[in-house]
């Protein structure tokens, strides 16, 4: 019996895996799921009478899953913060990070502005596409650390907020 923990939507789910012959029997909460390996990263299972092929791979502390084109990235609980999207991983709602390395095209807020949740904060260009980054919480803009034209990575917050209590 092997046990694993994964984070799904801020919730930690515990699993127990048993291997019976070639079949993996996995207990998640109340349910038991059987997965038959097709190849190293493909597994088949039956949902509502239909056979589905699930793709799954693990890299470092993250598992990447495809079930009927619905994609999951499940992490094991960890104190470490990994490089990319560090801010997001740590759930720091008072900081706005670039989703990927790129260039700041336009800042949509200034220091002192009051912002609401999901308000557009900054436009970042990467891969020839412009992306609008939204605020994760309500608050007041405390600092703007970059200007239009600056290159940004995913580790340094572009904008910092004073959260409203």
């Amino acid at each position: 019996m092997y046990n694993f923990e994964f984070i799904y939507d801020d919730e930690t789910l515990t699993t127990a895996v048993e291997k019976q012959g070639e079949t993996f029997r996995v207990t998640v909460g109340e349910s038991t799921i059987e997965l038959q390996p097709i190849s190293e990263n493909l597994f088949s299972t039956i949902i509502d009478g239909q056979r589905k092929v699930v793709a799954a791979v693990r890299s470092k502390d993250t598992c990447y899953i495809d079930i009927d084109s619905v994609l999951f990235e499940l992490r094991e609980p960890s104190d470490d913060i990994y490089g990319a999207g560090a801010g997001d991983a740590a759930g720091e709602k008072d900081k706005v990070f670039a989703p990927m390395p790129g260039k700041v095209v336009k800042l949509l807020v200034a220091v002192g502005d009051e912002v609401t949740e999901k308000q557009p904060m900054v436009i970042v260009e990467a891969m020839k596409m412009e992306n609008t980054v939204l605020s994760k919480a309500k608050g007041t803009v405390k600092a703007v650390n970059f200007a239009a034209g600056d290159q940004v990575d995913t580790d340094t917050p572009i904008i910092e907020l004073e959260l409203e209590e």
Partner: peptide, 27 residues
Amino acid sequence: ESNTYRHLAVAAAAVASMTTNSKSTAQ
């Protein structure tokens, strides 16, 4: 639709963690 599949996703993640652990690391 991701919530529908959350248990299956977690199950697949657990199995991938086991199989990645054994032979696929080298690959």
